[in-house]
Computed example of a mutant assay.
Amino acid sequence: MAPAQRFIRFSGSSRRAVPPSPPQSKKFRTISDILTRAKYAVVERENYSDVKCEDCGSGEEPDQLLLCDKCDKGFHMKCLRPIVAKVPIGSWLCPKCCGRRTVRRFSQKKIFDFFRIEKCLNDDNTYASLQDSRKRRRRSRPLAVQKRKRRLLPYVPSDDPSCRMKQMASLASALTALQMEFSDDLTYLPGLAPRSANNAKLEKDGMQILAKEDIETLEYCRSMARRGECPPLLVVFDSCEGFTVQADGPIKVLTIIAEYTGDVDYLKNREKDDGDSIMTLLLAKDPSKSIVICPDKRGNIARFISGINNHTSDGRKKQNCKCVRYDVNGECRVILVANRDIAKGERLYYDYNGYEQEYPTHLFL
């Protein structure tokens, strides 16, 4: 098995870690910038010399002290939740000012248009026929085959159409807040990595091949999603963790949660990228051919599922999903799967597959 790697992500946060502002910026992000380069600042140097962190009350480490664009209060990057790893570029709002942001509301028609739903959510016959076809496949499978290997399970959507509307609305609001488009597929754009670069045979240590039956289960989940029968998941905003995902119904172990989607690009083009959710898709023997998934402009609910702090026992206990890269018909795909039963209301977390020394998961909540 070749598990998926993931680059720096701060517990579902919508805030990105990026390089410091250049001198031509209209406003500097840190107190240190203002004090050392006051001639570029919009305000006078002395107005900010006594700014202190609103959380710890200290004015030390001015290079780590961020200024809110709205209230002009200071915050140490390490004191913020989620933690900010690098000085942001452009506008930045403190948690209090950011919390005043209005959340866009979506009508049923707009939700249908946003997710390009093919049929009405009230089409119960369609849902019943999909469930019946899954049961027929199970009955036709020999018992010996059933016992040989545990297969992936399709998610079970909520029975109530109004619940599914609420679930999709929460995702649409989160994607809109990050100015993202919904996409349930990997996207190959001109100027980025072509689809031909996604060749599972290039994986340096080999990749687990997804069984034919599991591919059918994955396609079955995709067909449900296209009809508005989404997984029982809600995107919620937490003042500490940012956008995160919780179960809106019970989920059984080995259930497919979601496929990780977004724009596909070469890793070499994204080594200095400021994205907080870049996912490894292919690790090639030739590093120049390694590719990643970048859900900064397009993506789905997988974008908001959080990583865990795998340096602590409490952090590891949170893990209820695993993230695995599979060879699906010769192409690499990343799938999130429940690794234990998940109760309604429980938040979803997955680990970083043991790469504790490569990724700073000790910063996670």
Rank of each mutant, 00 (worst) to 15 (best):
K166F: 06
D132C: 08
P360Q: 02
N122T: 12
V292N: 10
A2P: 13
P194M: 15
F114Q: 04
F112A: 12
S223F: 02
R195C: 15
E61H: 11
S14V: 15
T255F: 07
P22K: 11
P82D: 07
S183E: 01
I256T: 08
P295M: 14
I278H: 02
T261H: 01
S58L: 07
C323N: 05
M168E: 00
K322M: 11
S223N: 07
D314A: 10
A144T: 14
N353F: 06
Y188W: 13
E118C: 09
K27P: 03
R29E: 12
G315L: 00
V156W: 06
G345P: 03
R303Q: 08
S140H: 10
L282Y: 01
Y266H: 09
E203P: 04
E181G: 05
L178F: 10
A193C: 08
R45S: 11
C94I: 09
T244W: 01
N309T: 02
C97Q: 09
T361E: 03
S91I: 10
R150E: 14
P194Q: 15
F75W: 13
N329V: 07
K317L: 09
K268D: 10
R6G: 06
Q108E: 15
A2R: 10
F237A: 04
P250V: 07
S13P: 07
L178E: 15
N269R: 12
